[in-house]
């Protein structure tokens, strides 16, 4: 939701950018570079790649600003650009050979019962995340997911892409995007399980 103050700030800045105002470009870069880096870093495992991708994204922003119509917030538009730049980098590198995710999915007996009964978690996310150690644990767990699943989880659960947008960004079907999201969350749950289940604590 865009407040009118933000809309005005965006509108004034965009007008100045379109007019080629050098100060406006510097304001744009300084206002957005931290968040752009944060987004790039969660997709890419190397900081050097993240910095390259942020440069590519800003170049795309500079080239696209004349066509920016202001239907979305400037920050939303830039967010999409850096996410797409990061995805392109992952595709180009095909980073790691895709690990199978099957080992991280729950298993079932022939009669359909859980092979290992899930235990309740002794955790309240809002409270747990106050601890830096837990945040690190969760980020590491996300990093352990195979790229094809990790990217879907990031797009859907973190970056606010819907199923259609996720499918388009990755060049996969909507059904594949749905399946990967569910598997990615199950795998992430499995990795976190030993840390949070009541039996362990």
């Amino acid at each position: 939701m865009q407040t009118s103050a933000e809309a005005t700030h965006d509108g004034v800045l965009v007008d100045r950018l379109k007019a080629g105002d050098a100060d406006a470009y510097e304001t744009l870069v300084r206002d957005h570079i931290g968040r752009m880096l944060a987004v790039a870093r969660r997709y890419l495992r190397s900081d050097e790649d993240a910095q390259d991708v942020v440069q590519e994204a800003f170049l795309a922003v500079f080239r696209g600003i004349d066509g920016f119509a202001g239907h979305a917030r400037l920050s939303t538009w830039m967010h999409r650009i850096v996410v797409n730049a990061a995805l392109m980098r992952i595709r180009k590198r095909s980073y790691t050979a895709e690990k199978p995710i099957d080992d991280l999915l729950p298993t079932f007996l022939d009669d359909g019962h859980h092979a290992i009964e899930p235990q309740a978690w002794n955790v309240d996310a809002a409270q747990a995340i106050e601890s830096a150690e837990t945040r690190e644990l969760v980020r590491d767990a996300i990093d352990q997911l195979p790229d094809g699943h990790r990217t879907v989880l990031l797009l859907r659960d973190i970056d606010g892409f819907d199923t259609g947008e996720t499918a388009a960004a990755l060049g996969i079907s909507e059904n594949a995007a749905k399946i990967r999201l569910h598997r990615a969350r199950q795998a992430l749950r499995q990795i976190l399980d030993p840390h949070f289940s009541e039996e362990q604590s």
Binding site: R42, V123, A125, T134, R185, Q186, L192, D193, F196
Partner: peptide
């Protein structure tokens, strides 16, 4: 725990 996983991921990031 599936619900908690989604929230933990969001909050950590």
């Amino acid at each position: 725990s599936y619900e908690e996983t989604i929230k933990l991921g969001r909050d950590a990031i």
